[in-house]
Design a binder for these strands. Structure first.
Length: 718
DNA sequence: ACCGTCACATACACGCAAGC
DNA sequence: GCTTGCGTGTATGTGACGGT
């Protein structure tokens, strides 16, 4: 009966919120406020969770008094009860609808609709146009393709027709992004740049307003979990683009002094499975594995909010290339300005990060990856090749995080990269590092020849054992530079604008729609601590965490650098620990393995060196440590082999045998590292311009000392 | 060819009030 | 102070139509 309290004219007003001129305190003439958008509901929930009392009435009162949207006791209670679901929906908001989204849309053919969205997105990104008739035609095409309807059944009755009205709404739904991209493409200043000189001038003028520490560049790289040089592309899918499900994409964002850095954006199709992963606010999950505009926007927003929280006055500028996903609305950025490189120049070599940061980052990560592969090669005897040379995404992400956590203290690397790009006032850098003997050599970019040599050596070992399944990825190893370049920067790992074929769109949408949202558990923890966690992104970690690990042993590293130590079940650890289980097969393999190890030890590194004719190694020229390691290795192996040559011993002590086996593998790995280090150190002395990052990663005090004199700088640069 | 409006359909979410 | 059943309002997809 009470429903008739409202006079009919209330209902006739479709948008009561537009009539706010009516005073609200007149009860008899009260207008209903508009419904809350999903974003507003989330705002209420956040406020509620962060409030002292967590009293629904109090929260209700607060937002009721604001009078921005309708809210009642029962409504709000339902929001609280459905919090997980609401937050799940909130994650799926796009830039197009996040301002208006209220009710979950129910499309007739959601998948086909999504296909058309992707297509339309791409068309606007590529600055093309499409007529409405064509759009409707494409909808039908997608419909046929998605449901695998053969063209022979091509009668109009099987395909639902789409009307003009439908199209109008479709275009309105996608209007926000379209206008955004259009604005980018009509930026006359950006597109009028013709020469590199113009561009440098333009950027210098723009950047002049900022201090060095406020100038950032962001750029993406990716890593394939199964490098094609080891495993030929199986092409189980029909994608014409690099498969996003097989890679992890990383966006580095650093400033010109290297002083303040943000955790890199990491995207993959690996769903966060534990609390740690969920708490990392720079780690993003996308069902297709692709970096989306939304993810990129969220990342930048969190960077912005971090600055706004810690230093409200600080304004920074971020340099970006013309990757489609970089085009985001900027009106919400209070502390960030985005500046794009001129797309018309087609990526000439002048981006600061390309002068060393990217290369060294890739080198470090690939080095760790190779170590994992090596470990799997020696330990995982019963694994297939494709398994051996495929990383889990957890491992890869861990490696990326660890690498970053080490590299971010290398301010020298970053500042030098920026300096060499010549986009910033050079005197400022020279003032900071007065000892730098730089000339105007533009093409000079930094690299870690030490690590690169080690990688090449490891690749050679693999090549000699004929483990390369696919030689396409790597050129002749005689051209050492090409060799390493192809390994570090294979085409499949480039992050660039791609053109999706219709079949790609279908495939991606299929992937997006498989599985029915399994993520309805344990959203509680992350929700209540969102505010807290966001602040973690930009927090420079304390120097105490710079612990460097001399060995390549990865297990030890996971315990440091960003992962809380009270979390015993990191996926990586779990995997490595269960790697060796006592089984008859493993036990039987031990004898053979011991032989293997011994042959490598007694003829030290012959396998590693067989083809490195440029440097001849012998024991006397190696440093003492290496010789010692080799001798100890020989000694131990001899004893062990004797001991385990008796069958009853191996049966009786099978567990111990496995332990020994494991220990020896670690030992082998570490002495390999030692060896490679001494090998590379010798080599590096011959190089006129190398970059020895291992020295640079010393304690800060030592670095300062190095910077003090010109002589030590030469030594520092190799 | 493009753009906008309208009527209609529908499912979800709102507000009330009673119940816990 | 929080939850729930019920009747209905609201948001929004859809397609027809008409104007420019």
């Amino acid at each position: 009966m009470s429903h008739f309290h409202f006079p009919p004219q209330d209902n006739s007003c479709k948008y009561p919120d537009l009539m706010n001129t009516v005073p609200e305190n007149q009860d008899h003439n009260r207008r209903r406020l508009r419904r809350a958008t999903l974003a507003e509901k989330i705002k209420v929930l956040d406020w509620h969770n962060n409030s002292e009392r967590k009293c629904q009435q109090a929260t209700l009162q607060y937002f009721h008094d604001l009078g921005e949207f309708a809210i009642t006791k029962s409504t709000m209670n339902r929001w609280v009860l459905n919090e997980k679901e609401l937050r799940q929906d909130y994650k799926n908001l796009t830039l197009n609808n996040n301002k208006v989204y209220k009710t979950k849309p129910k499309f007739k053919d959601p998948e086909v609709n999504r296909c058309l969205e992707l297509l339309y997105d791409q068309i606007t990104n590529e600055n093309c146009t499409i007529t409405e008739r064509e759009l409707i035609q494409r909808w039908s095409n997608f419909y046929l393709m998605f449901y695998n309807i053969p063209k022979t059944d091509f009668n109009s009755s099987t395909i639902p027709t789409k009307s003009n009205g439908w199209l109008h709404h479709f275009k309105r739904r996608t209007a926000f992004k379209r206008d955004l991209v259009k604005r980018f493409h009509t930026d006359s200043e950006l597109y009028s740049v013709r020469t590199l000189e113009d561009e440098k001038l333009r950027l210098k003028n723009t950047l002049a307003r900022y201090q060095l520490s406020q100038i950032y560049q962001l750029d993406e790289v990716s890593f394939k979990i199964n490098p094609t040089c080891f495993i030929p592309n199986h092409q189980s899918n029909s994608l014409t683009i690099p498969d996003p499900a097989e890679r992890v994409t990383v966006a580095l964002c650093v400033n010109a002094t290297g002083s303040s850095v943000f955790a890199p954006l990491i995207v993959s199709d690996l769903e966060p499975s534990n609390k740690i992963m969920k708490s990392l606010k720079n780690l993003f999950y996308s069902k297709s594995g692709l970096l989306t505009t939304e993810i990129f926007f969220k990342y930048l927003k969190s960077v912005n909010d971090t600055i706004a929280q810690n230093a409200p006055q600080e304004k920074i500028v971020i340099l970006l290339d013309d990757l489609y996903t970089h085009i985001v609305p900027q009106d919400e950025f209070t502390n960030i300005e985005l500046v794009y490189f001129a797309p018309s120049l087609n990526k000439l070599d002048y981006y600061p990060l390309d002068f060393g940061v990217i290369r060294i980052f890739k080198t470090e990560v690939k080095y760790s990856i190779m170590q994992i592969f090596f470990k799997k090669l020696t330990i995982g005897m019963d694994q297939s090749f494709s398994k051996t040379f495929t990383l889990s995404k957890e491992d890869l992400i861990s490696v990326i995080m660890d690498t970053w956590n080490t590299m971010k203290y290398n301010t020298m690397l970053t500042s030098t990269s920026f300096h060499n790009s010549q986009l910033i006032p050079s005197f400022a850098v020279l003032n900071q590092h007065r000892s730098m003997p730089f000339d105007s050599d533009v093409s000079f970019s930094l690299r870690d020849t030490n690590k690169e040599t080690q990688i090449v050596n490891m690749l050679r070992v693999i090549q000699e054992r004929n483990l390369f399944r696919n030689h396409k990825g790597l050129p002749s190893r005689k051209h050492s530079d090409l060799y390493i370049d192809h390994f570090l920067f294979p085409a499949e790992e480039k992050v660039e604008n791609v053109h999706l074929q219709d079949s790609d769109i279908i495939e991606l949408v299929r992937r997006e729609h498989t599985g029915i949202d399994p993520d309805l558990e344990s959203g509680q923890a992350s929700s209540s601590s969102i505010q807290h966690n966001i602040s973690q992104i930009g927090q420079p970690e304390s120097a105490a965490q710079t612990t460097l690990h001399p060995t390549g042993s990865n297990e030890s590293r996971y315990l440091h650098n960003g992962y809380p130590q009270d979390q015993p079940t990191h996926p990586t650890q779990r995997q490595h620990n269960t790697n060796i289980v006592p089984s008859p097969l493993t036990t039987n393999l031990i004898m053979g393995e011991l032989d293997n190890l011994k042959s490598q030890r007694t003829a030290p590194h012959s396998a590693m060196l067989a083809n490195s004719n440029d440097v001849s190694m012998n024991k006397s020229s190696a440093n003492g440590e290496t010789v010692e390691a080799t001798e100890i290795g020989k000694l131990m192996l001899g004893r062990l082999k004797d001991f385990f040559s008796l069958p009853e011993n191996i049966n009786h002590y099978s567990n111990s045998a496995i332990q020994f086996h494991r220990f020896l593998n670690t030992y082998l790995q570490e002495s390999n590292d030692l060896y490679m280090k001494s090998y590379a150190n010798q080599k590096i002395n011959k190089q006129s311009r190398g970059y020895n990052s291992s020295q640079n990663l010393e304690q800060p005090s030592k670095r300062r000392q190095l910077e003090g004199t010109t002589n030590s700088f030469d030594q520092f640069m190799g």
